[in-house]
């Protein structure tokens, strides 16, 4: 029964998120509304951690393989990528490395500054 209840809560929150997405015309996907909604439900105690824990952890753990089908779909989009292939070969790695490095360093700088103040 535990898993049925957990699955029911997770899918209900997802469903409400999809309804929100329908009524709020922003370029924000249902999954993000759902993530925020689930977080608020946990924060307010309306949903308790044990009511979703195991099933949520299972889904998060197997999340990697859920990206495989969409990415394999790139083989279909190859012709649209081709005209800007050269810029992309530069832009994708450079911006990804920069964003990761700069975000991480900024966070680390703030964290260490705070630690020193203590």
């Amino acid at each position: 029964m535990k898993y049925i209840r957990q699955m029911a809560i997770i899918l209900s929150v997802t469903c409400v998120a999809e309804i929100l997405k329908y009524f709020i015309p922003l370029p924000i996907p249902a999954s993000i509304y759902g993530l925020v909604l689930m977080f608020l439900l946990l924060l307010t105690g309306l949903v308790k951690l044990p009511q979703v824990k195991e099933t949520a952890e299972f889904l998060v753990e197997i999340m990697t393989i859920m990206f495989i089908p969409a990415t394999v779909g790139l083989m279909e989009n190859w012709d649209v990528l081709q005209p800007i292939l050269l810029p992309l070969i530069v832009i994708i790695p450079v911006t990804t490395i920069l964003v990761m490095g700069v975000t991480g360093r900024t966070a680390q700088w703030f964290l260490r500054k705070k630690e020193k103040q203590k």
């Binding site: 909604l37 951690l49 998060v60 197997i62």
Partner: peptide
């Protein structure tokens, strides 16, 4: 391939919703 692989993609939305759980922890 995607006719059956789409059942994997289907779980992406609920799984993303579940990212709230490790965040809340």
């Amino acid at each position: 391939y995607n006719a059956s692989a789409k059942y994997l993609s289907y779980w992406l939305t609920p799984a993303t919703v579940c990212l709230a759980v490790p965040l809340y922890a």
